[in-house]
Amino acid sequence: MKLFTHNMLTSKMIKNVKVGYPLKLNAAEVKVTPSEFRSTYVSRMLPKIDWGVLYEATQSIGHAEAIPSSISDDYEKNEDFLRKAHHALFEIEVINGEMICPETGRKFPIKDGIPNMLVNEDEVN
């Protein structure tokens, strides 16, 4: 699972959960898979990204140096920044680990790079 995906996922499917975001991330195995950098794509994606959540995620899985703590104002022109953002969003992958709902503490396992967001029948409306 890429940190991009972590940035988009919520635990709103659980009953009585209001926001369910961000999910706390614990990683047992992390892998870096190089992928092609496209600056236009990354800068198009950045407005959708919650930078604080991304920064927190890099911290929690041992890639503390990957990105700066705040987003660059002129990121569209700052290729160095965009490359770092690309690396954090699309290259760092959690292979095994878990995500935790901030409101209920419910754990969502990540196995072989695929998060399991299914909840049990007694947890949904």
Binding site: M1, K2, F4, T5, L9, T10, K12, M13, F90, G113, I114, P115, N116, M117, L118, V119, V124
Partner: peptide
């Protein structure tokens, strides 16, 4: 990007 195991009838 990714695939996720999830129920399409619930918010994700």
């Amino acid at each position: 990007l990714d695939v996720v195991v999830a129920d399409a009838s619930r918010p994700l």
